[in-house]
Design a protein around this nucleic acid. Structure first.
Length: 264
DNA sequence: ATTCTTACA
DNA sequence: TGTAAGTA
């Protein structure tokens, strides 16, 4: 009895699929010790070590092509920068995963703001909220009469990355222009929302149509209660909340209030 | 029963 | 990468 093992045994031993071992062979990085007359691939200790090394390379994110070169003609000095790059790539991946984690946490946190009753959704939920100073960076501007279109997105595609993970701030100024802002994170700040009291109304609607109308309601409500609203109307769109409720859009209407105490 | 090759999503 | 068919 020979000391060599079959491909499925090697696969079990190294915790990989048989297919993957054959794939490495096709790419020229791992060949059997020999093949029997039944065409079965047979592997010995040399191949076990070699496969172990291949899997370590792969764990570091190297392509099979690069692994092949490392294992054949590259010297230690040539391999070192490759590993340094693998280190940087791995750090970037960790960062990406941490960002994803933060996003999921934010999602679960903000889920609590979704109204559970339909009546609550149509009424909207008014509240006076305290907000910290909030820096915004401008994405682009459009006419108030316009609605956000795919054309807009493609025209300004370079200015924003993970668009629909962000809170999109529609800032309405007096001259019929709407500025589209996102939170300024390290980048330049174009507009800062002052800290203080804001009248807030969360909205939970079927379509975009109703939002403009509720802006009127918003100010009517404020006037009724005697709130002095100043500064622009800010509508925050949280499109990612639709992950919970696919057929509804989530908005928060905000305006700075200079006399929050009248409502008490 | 296991592996091999090839094709395909 | 995984899965499936048809062989040896």
């Amino acid at each position: 009895m020979k000391d060599e093992i079959t491909i499925s045994e090697l696969a079990q031993l190294m915790q990989v699929s048989v297919h993957q071992i054959r794939y490495f062979e096709e790419k020229g990085v791992l060949h059997p010790a020999y093949t029997g007359e039944n065409q079965y691939r047979m592997y010995g200790m040399d191949e076990v070590y070699r496969l172990a090394h291949i899997l370590l390379f792969r764990k570091m994110g190297l392509s099979v092509q690069v692994i092949k070169e490392c294992l054949s003609h590259l010297t230690a000095e040539q391999i070192t920068p490759i590993f340094r790059q693998a280190l940087r790539d791995t750090e970037a991946e960790i960062q990406r995963l941490q960002d994803t984690k933060l996003f999921i946490e934010k999602l679960l946190d903000e889920k609590e703001q979704i109204p559970k009753q339909v009546s609550q959704a149509t009424e909207g939920t008014y509240a006076i909220v305290q907000r910290e100073e909030f820096p915004l960076s401008l994405w682009f501007e459009m006419q108030e009469a316009e609605s956000l279109s795919a054309k807009h997105l493609i025209q300004h595609r370079n200015n924003i990355s993970n668009l629909f993970e962000a809170d999109i701030h529609y800032v309405h100024n007096d001259s019929g222009i709407v500025g589209m802002y996102t939170k300024a994170e390290g980048g330049q700040t174009d507009l800062t929302l002052p800290s203080g009291s804001y009248l807030s109304r969360t909205l939970f609607v079927e379509n975009e149509e109703g939002v403009a109308a509720t802006a009127q309601e918003f100010y009517a409500y404020a006037e009724e209660r005697g709130y002095m609203c100043s500064g622009p109307l800010i509508i925050i769109e949280k499109s990612y909340l639709s992950l919970f409720t696919p057929d509804q859009l989530h908005y928060e209407l905000l305006s700075y209030v200079s006399n929050p105490e009248v409502g008490e």
